[in-house]
Design a protein around this nucleic acid. Sequence first.
DNA 1: TCTCATGTTCCATCAGGTGGAATTCGGGTG
DNA 2: CACCCGAATTCCACCTGATGGAACATGAGA
Lengths: 261, 261
Amino acid sequence: MAADHSYDGMNRSLERGIAILRAFKPGVADLGNAEIAERTGLAKATVSRLTQTLVSGGLLQRDPRRRVYRLAPAVLSLAHAMRLSSPMLSVVAPLMRAEASRRRVNVGLAAADQDMMVYLESFRYHPRLTHRTVVSGQRIPVELTSLGRAYLWALEPSAREREYAAIAKRRPKTYKRLIREVERSFAELDRLGYCAVGWQPGVVAVATTLPFGAGEPHLMNMSIGSVEPLEEAAHRLAPWLLDLKRRCLNRLEHAAVSELS
Amino acid sequence: MAADHSYDGMNRSLERGIAILRAFKPGVADLGNAEIAERTGLAKATVSRLTQTLVSGGLLQRDPRRRVYRLAPAVLSLAHAMRLSSPMLSVVAPLMRAEASRRRVNVGLAAADQDMMVYLESFRYHPRLTHRTVVSGQRIPVELTSLGRAYLWALEPSAREREYAAIAKRRPKTYKRLIREVERSFAELDRLGYCAVGWQPGVVAVATTLPFGAGEPHLMNMSIGSVEPLEEAAHRLAPWLLDLKRRCLNRLEHAAVSELS
DNA sequence: TCTCATGTTCCATCAGGTGGAATTCGGGTG
DNA sequence: CACCCGAATTCCACCTGATGGAACATGAGA
């Protein structure tokens, strides 16, 4: 999908293999070769060979009875390796958890993947159980959420333009209105260092950036189920979020320094 | 790595791309092109091109300053999609969690990936915090653990031989003794439906199979930190495990039936 | 048994992947 | 600031091996 670059330095087979993996998402769990071919626009024969390779590489497994493929345990291993490897996660997660429990709110950390935001970690506050991390890996739209807007805000202009183009393509109808809202969030971020959005009824979220290192920007949010007006809830959450952000950046600084041993 | 099949129906570039992804594991978080080339045995130029493709596909991200790649958020999304898609997980996990809390033990669900076992889910009992799921995706050796032995036991002879060969290659020294131990576990599984292993000091684990559907076998275990002798602890855990297994299979049966609507 | 839908294998074609060598890039050093 | 060194990228000629249409297998359902 997307603009086909005449020819960059990209490896075609691998690109296609990745496209096949990405065809699996929550809701589309099991896919046969035919459906994969349809969704990716690849030739049947090609899909057949690539899925074989993905199976032998352990990223897909097939259910021969139902003639479908699904994602294999190896993707869990990769995710596990990633979480352990991320200094961001290992340093910040404990602070997030403590804050979620102390303030009785949800606290999330996210980064961008293509034109979606992905939760790297999310501690949900739940009055009964202690908060558990369930939604790591969950994808949410960039243009509708506080996390996504903070992300767009953090981007340099050229990259931001690319994102806008993706949004325009995805939502031609509401595009103009969305951008206007997005830029109102930018103003908030400029002025106050956070933005507040209530994209799901009864849920208020505030988000900010967690700028560290050279890579992709990370975003942090805090959210709460609430009946009070957005403004009010946001004003309550924002100081907590900004304080948490400050402490996280401190810790990251320390961790980076002590790593130079 | 491993035996290079002269030429099966495998796509070489994709195979190599997967090999690169697999080079990232807990402990080896950041890899430069050079190190990837070394670890995978690929040519520098090839690695350079494939990593570019993986980055553009969102599976890797690069830290330009440190000149290294690491796994990208998209792998979390894939893992997330996988967990949601697995009927096994969604049906069985609640039962596992309840059991972990009720019996005050660790309860795990695993499947095989290549020659390792991968935890699909694991509820650790912890007296303080409620049990959380942390280790999903963690890899443990097949030959030393109760889960792994139950897996080997569930395999058909030809596949089991392949696993034996892999073990022999990995541990030429202790191979013979290991196989003897493994087959003692088989005897337990034949007689009692479970096997008990204490592969880490002070930890006793019992495991059994969770045969459902046509795909790869799933394994379930229960473990506990304990100072009592293995036999004794195992006798305490086994009835709980087998009862849990029975209830899980029931639920799976129901779920499968009601899916035919 | 026939039929239809889906997956796999074949094969001629040639796009495009490959790896050694040359080049560029960056960061550390005197 | 010029220099150097290791790493990454780009170039390029070679030719492997990926590709997709068509033929062939494989099951499931009628």
